[in-house]
Design a protein around this nucleic acid. Structure first.
Lengths: 195, 195
DNA sequence: GTCTATAAGATGATAGAC
DNA sequence: GTCTATCATCTTATAGAC
């Protein structure tokens, strides 16, 4: 019956910490030594789990995408109306914006895009594609039901929403003011739900 | 009469190149050696002009803010209607989004925010404040004239616009697809100018 | 202003013992 | 899986000659 690890595996510990460091400092501002020091092992041990930094980056994004997909499924289960689902999606980002000064892993890696290995770049594009596809479905349903008035195709509005949320996190953090995320995204949400 | 330099000063050359490198790679992914190598001098000479990387970062942002302020003044002179001015502001970002894969210096440094020296952080906040203030004026005029219908206070909508434009550049570049910037920002512009 | 030389430390990564 | 030891290279920065 004991299928859950009482202690998190080292690999998972590394991934969680690496994500946090990327979200706060960026891909090129953390090292294997940073990870090792905070976890309490040596950097050679990190290389055992993730031979290169590209391997680590790819694994980080895979994990982040999975967690994000789980969150979207949870929304689909708990919220049935398009506006409820859209609002819950915004809250996903809101939580990150309010958590200690980090921004979305996707937005952060988008900034570092041109320094990433091709495999990591591909994984990042897939992350955005995941969100855009889910949003497109919600927007189509909301447009059909009359809940939303869209200023463009569902596909384009989905892209606009993802872009705006990523940007809002960045700018809000630059001011060390999470309230700015709320102010910026409230305008966007209102423009979609207003008749 | 010859007040213009036929050859650009070394300091200006350094600043221009440093800006380009930050916009494409990020603050923590370029070095004094990169600058030196591409300009054709030694890294010690870069330190002569900008003793520390924080000095360089601060000077970069000052220069960027000045250029940006000039661009806003040019818009004020050439465009008289609020909608014309807003559209020209969007085009400022559009040009950067289309130029070879770089994004706004402000957006890039916002990602690197937590690794920057306090003085550079302050300069970055001022950059965003400049834009928000100018936009606020344009939005107020447009709301008064009936050109715009705002989903929030001019201050909040200004923040939403800056955030959305920064995010749109990031996401568009992640896909190596400048058209995504246009698709995302078109939705935003339409939502503001639609009655 | 630019150079050579150098410092002190960090970086991603590997080899091989336990 | 983790360790010690090591590597070649890069990083920001300084001292002092030309």
């Amino acid at each position: 019956m004991d299928t859950t690890n009482a202690t998190t595996s080292t690999a998972e510990q590394i991934l969680a910490l690496a994500c946090e460091l990327v979200q706060t400092r960026g891909y090129n501002a953390f090292s294997y030594r940073d990870l090792a020091g905070q976890i309490g092992i040596k950097s050679a041990s990190i290389h055992h789990h993730f031979p290169t930094k590209a391997d680590l980056g790819k694994a980080m994004l895979r994990r982040y995408r999975e967690n994000f997909a789980d969150a979207l499924e949870a929304i689909d289960r708990s919220r049935k109306s398009p506006s409820g689902r859209l609002s819950a999606y915004f809250d996903l980002f809101r939580q990150t914006a309010r958590s200690d000064r980090g921004v979305c892993l996707g937005g952060m890696l988008a900034a570092d895009m041109l320094t990433l290995a091709p495999e990591v770049q591909a994984e990042l594009r897939a992350f955005f594609a995941d969100s855009e596809e889910w949003l497109k479905g919600v927007l189509e349903a909301g447009a059909a039901s009359g809940d939303f008035s869209l200023n463009g195709s569902p596909k384009d509005v989905a892209l606009a929403i993802v872009s705006a949320l990523e940007g809002a996190m960045m700018v809000a953090r630059a001011h060390a003011d999470p309230a700015r995320f709320d102010r910026a995204t409230r305008c966007l949400l209102d423009s979609l739900t207003k008749s």
